Amino acid sequence: MDVIVKTRRGFEKIAASHIGEVLGPGAEVEPAPFGYLGIVFVKAPGSDKWALAQLIAQKVPEADRVLVVEKLVPADPAEIEKAAVEVAKRYINPDDTFAIRTTRRGSHTFSSIDINVRVGAAVKEITGANVDLEEPTKPLYVEIFQDTAAVCIPATGEYRKLRRDKPLALGYLRKVALGQFVYEGDEEAVRKMGERIGRAVQTFEVGELTILLHKPVQGRALRAFIQAVEEGIESRYQIQVKSYGRAVWKVPVYVYELYQYVRAREGEPIVVTDPKGEYVTHVKEKLAELFSRERVNILIGAREGVPPGVFRFATLVVDLVPQVTIATDFVVPSLAIALISALEEAKALPKYTGRRDKKLRTLT
């Protein structure tokens, strides 16, 4: 093989077909080799494999990652280390950073971490480059297929959710105490709206949600709304617990009467969302000042807005999208995105600086 293409599982044949069309009849394209999904082998005798890889990267969107095979060796740690060092000598400079990315397929007496540690130590010694497991300038891939290991250089970049200098929003969202008016209507509509609101507040892991009453509400409607909100929170929370690599905050739910809530939060920042307010980015400096406090209370209406009398007790009244009245189930996502954007513009958010995993750096 000259090039290994990684694609979504189930897209191997589609990707292989498009690769064959792009490269022409001289190319040998094998989808799902050895039955491994998400993989396509490409070989084109007599062609420049880097040119092939670049062409695939440019023309085939099904190719999530394109790897140029520099060495093929038996799947033995000593052989892999030797081959990786040879590749690294011409690929990695002392002022680069690198990481070893190993994927095993098949049964072996060693793990992917074993290869990462062994090869990483050898590459560091021979090149003098530093290890950066998060954002290496020169990642080196080891793709193992049963008895064969391929040492590869990527022809496509790496994408990561959290990169250095990205703003960190979660701590600021945790300061948000939402006051959400009860949504009224037929029971089915109330349940759907409540579940959507619950999923939204849990998605952003706000500090708390208080369901606010500002007039008499039918007990059945209130019960349905609260139950649906809690079901939405639980549904999203379970997904987060399974998929996140960190602890997840489960949003607590309270019920309070609006005017007593405002009195109880006297002395704390209170922000009202309403089209009559200032555009959120125009008050970004004030918002940054408010978010230096432990808790920021934000009131959200439902069908009818927050009563104007409450505006006098608010620290700020903000408009999230001028000329647009946002549907109730879209307010929380719109609010969270607008707040974080405004705080970032005000340079109030801390930046991600990378993990400081001394143990891994020592091992590699």
Rank of each mutant, 00 (worst) to 15 (best):
V3Y: 00
G10R: 09
S17D: 11
L23H: 08
Y36T: 15
G46W: 07
P61S: 12
P61D: 10
E62H: 11
L67Y: 04
L67F: 07
L67W: 06
K71E: 15
L72R: 13
A84N: 03
K89D: 02
T97R: 01
A99I: 00
T109D: 12
R118E: 03
A121E: 05
E125D: 09
G128P: 02
D132F: 02
E134N: 03
K138E: 00
P139M: 00
E143P: 07
E143G: 02
A149M: 08
A155R: 01
K175V: 10
F181R: 09
E187H: 13
M193A: 14
V206Y: 01
R223Y: 15
F225A: 11
I233D: 03
I233A: 03
S235L: 14
Q240M: 14
Y244M: 15
V253H: 07
Y261M: 07
P269D: 03
T273W: 02
P275Q: 09
K276D: 08
K276M: 04
G277S: 04
Y279Q: 06
Y279S: 05
F291P: 01
S292W: 03
R293K: 13
R293H: 10
E294H: 03
L299A: 05
A302W: 05
R303G: 06
V306N: 12
V310E: 04
F313N: 12
F313R: 15
D319A: 13
T325P: 04
I337S: 12
I340P: 02
Y352R: 08
K359Q: 15
L360G: 02
R361E: 08
T364A: 11
